[in-house]
């Protein structure tokens, strides 16, 4: 794959005062690639993910989505228009779902497409049905989020993001807030997306999942990418000592 990357992060750095949370990180993701970012908490992995759609703006460096610079310096109004159109192409799934509790599942999914793509109510309904079918929750279409389990909420959140037909999906610890028995149903949906060759960047604590699904694994610690490579290398034969220590601690409970 020598194509231009779909996501191109160049020399990303971010600091809060004297605290550097990201130190000169560069990362290219090709279309259809699935990248896992692992690392201890405070390593900067979520910050890096959230820089991709400029939710946490970088202090310096560039983020590109294909041939558009995401974090372009623009006057506030132009930036607003620019970032809103960029974000329509980048789906994001959060640890705490962030579903809209005052809207039904259907309305959660159709809100953004209706407002931003000007599609009719019928088309929007079709879209909701299609996306819910994908995540196996069609029978919950008129439920409110408060009537769903955590796993179901997260599947709806994925359906909501997919309804915008994004080019890339970002997952920020999508299963960390779930009861253990609910993790699998969300993992299955993500695996299914992987099989459909959705480009995904996944921040996760689930080493097993990262190993099964991802093409590349990045291990981050203290704001830098310590080591990266295919999962079989990172998980079986990590070179760096910090990676080895992290994995030893993390895999202990899982085997």
């Amino acid at each position: 794959m020598t194509d231009r990357p779909i996501i191109d992060i160049r020399n990303a750095a971010k600091s809060y005062g004297s605290l550097e949370v990201l130190k000169d990180i560069s990362l290219q993701v090709q279309t259809g690639q699935i990248v896992a970012i692992i690392g201890p908490s405070g390593s900067g992995k979520s910050t890096l993910l959230r820089a991709i759609n400029d939710l946490d703006p970088l202090t310096s460096g560039e983020v590109w989505l294909e041939d558009t610079q995401v974090n372009k310096a623009l006057p506030p109004r132009q930036y607003e228009t620019h970032i809103n159109s960029v974000r329509q192409n980048i789906g994001m799934v959060f640890q705490h779902f962030n579903l809209f509790p005052h809207l039904t599942v259907r309305e959660n999914i159709t809100l953004a497409p209706k407002m931003l793509k000007g599609i009719s109510k019928t088309e929007a309904d079709q879209l909701a049905v299609e996306q819910l079918n994908k995540v196996g929750l069609l029978d919950r279409i008129d439920y409110y989020p408060s009537q769903l389990s955590g796993g179901q909420k997260q599947r709806v959140a994925i359906a909501r993001a997919l309804a915008m037909k994004p080019k890339v999906m970002l997952f920020d610890e999508a299963t960390s807030a779930l009861d253990p028995e609910l993790v699998e149903e969300v993992n299955l949906v993500m695996k299914q997306l992987a099989e459909e060759h959705m480009t995904m960047i996944i921040v996760t604590h689930e080493m097993g999942f990262a190993q099964d699904v991802c093409d590349r694994v990045l291990f981050m610690d203290q704001g830098v990418v310590v080591e990266e490579g295919p999962p079989e290398v990172i998980f079986r034969n990590p070179v760096n000592e910090r990676t080895q220590n992290f994995l030893r601690k993390h895999l202990k409970g899982q085997h």
């Binding site: 939710l55 994001m92 959060f94 809209f100 953004a112």
Partner: peptide, 20 residues
């Protein structure tokens, strides 16, 4: 998280306020 959920879908600040 409600602002983030709405803004990452591409809703503007005003749309986020009004609808979410």
């Amino acid at each position: 998280g409600q602002y983030e959920g709405a803004r990452t879908l591409g809703l503007s600040r005003m749309q986020t306020l009004r609808k979410v």
